[in-house]
Design a protein around this nucleic acid. Structure first.
Length: 597
RNA sequence: GGUCCUGUAGUUCAAUGGAUAGAACAAGUGUUUCCUAAACACUAGAUCCGGGUUCGAUUCCCGGCGGGACUACCA
């Protein structure tokens, strides 16, 4: 039984005995005592004052006396206004630390044989442009959520759906064919995804020029967009693709191959991966046949122009197109097919889509459509809807060239970390490989922490110039603390001090130390909550608090110079437990922590 | 127009309905013969406006005002 439950139970007992008030133990409001007051844990008294028919102060006093008499864990108490502050005995904290220290998987669970399976879709790139800052948030959130759910005992399958077909893909193919002169990643030195992205932009420019020309000739903008030779050519190419035209298919495979090679590098650098990748080119046909099945079962209907629609007005939404008049599929069609295939492939208990909040409507509709098609899991899809990353000047727009490229950004962060390390001169006796590995850990740690510490549901601002920070509430601050603890532990090991466990428990510790243990004990609950709320930010903020507290301790107390051997051992055990928790917590965020930096 | 999200120091972020709204960066100042100063300490600075519910509201409800997203035979 943990501390909260045991205190909750005894408080419930107290109010029952004193005031004949029946209250459930987990309804008791408990909170960590604020720093400026004496105590560890606080009971909020206000809910009992009515039944007690006494002042909050008096009620608190009575409950406090009851608790102290009946629970040896409570060493002292005080009442301020309606708050009963309890001090917990030092022995409790010391023994708790020992338990934490002995538990290598503290805070996390491992999936059992019969654990439920969660599939998490994230990343979902288009093969016509390189990944940018928005994708970074998506990838980091998806990966971290997967780690967090695993730590909560789920089996997790990480999946990626690649938008590898469609008119937009044909655009870059066409531009390459027309203007590329056979350029390849090898011949140009460009990363594959960047090369293809370049031709997507080339297409857009040429297309715009054609539109302007046509408009100058008197066409309306809409007419111009529909009749520009380039777009007609792209549509022809899509049709050829759908008809398995050998030449088009070969070009498609070649260019997508370049892109995948590029994406793989980016994913690897970012430290994310997938267990199963789906491609829209392999799922869209399934979607089409599902829509046709839905039409046959009258869930959907066909219009005179031969297009297929779902009427969602009964659900408070509009009508939704599912197949175009020419029979080709749309985004929604493909997502239906992909969902079905996934449930065929895996015994999914929970399906989670990590997709930006701009697609809230899409997923609302998807869920309803799958339900209408008779899939009992349709309504249970979870859209993990996260906020956009904005730049100080507003939203990123690829066409206006204001996107922050993922590869460039990561490289920049690593370079800055490299320079900082060099300036501080702390790695002078490390090998070049070690220095490089640390620069990478710190640079990426800074970026990842910056993104993940923010509540995922909120939009966030990224300032390329100012957001790169290695001081304060940042990844490197946490990494630094870990490295510093490790350094102390190495020295202790050199001196052959045994800190494998506490040999005694009968000694006095400071408030700072017992507080640190208290913060440590919260870790499992934070991991659980982060899983329930899909929020890596909770873990990030928790670790920051732990680290900040530890740094104060480190500054004010000596570890290796402490003369009392028992206390020295205690501080080493405490430090090692904190280092382990930092490492576990950061691992849940997908951030590595170095042994030295 | 409709639906949804959002508004906290100069800036970027915190705060299960609880005590004097926390941090970090930026500004100003101090701490290194001492386990890593990428640290620690100090100073100054904020809940968009108006109602309501409550013993208590940044949080919940209603109404304004501001910002954003969606509302495509694009994905």
């Amino acid at each position: 039984m943990n501390l909260e439950t045991s205190i909750g139970t005894i408080v419930a007992e107290a109010v029952k005995t004193l005031y004949a008030l029946e209250i459930d133990a987990n309804q008791i409001q408990l909170q960590k005592t604020k720093r400026e007051f004496e105590g560890d844990l606080t009971v909020v008294i206000f809910p009992f004052v009515k039944a007690a028919r006494k002042s909050p102060e008096q009620t608190g006093q009575e409950i406090g006396e009851f608790l102290q008499k009946n629970n040896p864990l409570i060493s002292a108490f005080n009442v301020i206004k309606g708050f009963l502050n309890l001090s917990i005995s030092q022995n409790y904290w010391i023994e708790t630390l020992n338990e934490i220290h002995c538990n290598p998987s503290f805070g996390t669970k491992t999936a059992t044989e019969d654990a439920k399976l969660m599939m998490i879709e994230y990343s979902s790139p288009n093969t016509n442009k390189p990944l940018h800052l928005g994708h970074i948030r998506n990838n980091l959130l998806g990966f971290s959520i997967a780690e967090i759910q695993k730590a909560n005992g789920w089996k997790v399958v990480k999946t990626n759906i690649v938008n590898d077909r469609g008119i937009h893909i044909c655009k870059s193919m066409l531009a390459w064919k027309l203007y590329g002169n056979g350029e390849t990643p090898a011949s140009s030195g460009l990363k594959g995804d960047h090369l293809v992205g370049k031709y997507y932009v080339v297409f857009d420019k040429a297309f715009k020029a054609e539109i302007k020309e046509l408009m100058d000739k008197g066409l309306s903008e809409d007419e111009a967009k529909k009749s520009a030779p380039l777009i007609l050519e792209a549509q022809k190419m899509l049709l050829a693709w759908e008809n398995n035209d050998t030449e088009v298919r070969r070009l498609w495979e070649t260019m997508n191959g370049w892109v995948y090679e590029g994406f793989d590098k980016t994913y690897k650098q970012l430290g994310v991966d997938f267990d199963k990748i789906y491609y829209e080119s392999e799922t869209y046909l399934e979607g089409k046949s599902e829509v046709e099945r839905g039409e046959a079962s009258k869930a959907f209907y066909r219009r005179e122009d031969n297009s297929v629609w779902a009427d969602l007005t009964g659900d408070g939404l509009d009508e939704k197109l599912l197949l175009r008049a020419d029979g080709t599929s749309v985004y929604m069609t493909q997502d239906i097919g992909t969902a079905k295939l996934r449930y065929n492939d895996y015994p999914i208990n929970k399906m989670v889509y990590v997709v930006g909040n701009e697609q809230n409507y899409h997923f609302q509709v998807l869920s309803i459509l799958l339900d209408k098609l008779g899939f009992e899991w349709g309504k249970s899809l979870v859209h993990f809807s996260y906020g956009m990353v904005e730049l100080p000047e507003g939203k990123m727009k690829s066409r206006e060239g204001t996107v922050v490229d993922a590869d460039d950004l990561m490289e920049e962060m690593i370079e800055t970390a490299r320079e900082t390390s060099q300036e501080l001169g702390k790695l002078d006796n490390c090998t070049p490989e070690e220095i490089e590995a640390i620069a990478r850990m710190v640079g990426l740690g800074s970026l990842k922490y910056f993104i993940l510490k923010v509540d995922p549901r909120k939009n966030m601002t990224f300032n390329p110039k100012e957001s790169i920070d290695f001081n304060g509430n940042t990844g490197p601050f946490i990494q630094y603390t870990h490295a510093r603890i490790k350094s102390v532990l190495r020295k202790a090991a050199d001196q052959e001090i045994d800190f494998s466990s506490l040999t005694g428990t009968d000694f006095a510790i400071s408030e700072k130390e017992s507080y640190l243990i208290q913060v440590l004990t919260e870790f499992p609950a934070v991991v659980r909550q982060a899983g329930e709320e899909f929020s890596p930010a909770l873990i990030a903020n928790y670790i920051y608090e732990l680290v900040k507290e530890y740094n104060q301790f480190y500054h004010d107390f000596s570890i290796l110079k402490e003369e009392n051997q028992t206390i020295k051992q205690f501080r080493l055990v405490l430090s090692e437990s904190i280092a382990a928790t930092i490492k576990t917590g950061m691992r849940l965020l997908g951030i590595d922590v170095p042994e030295r930096m």
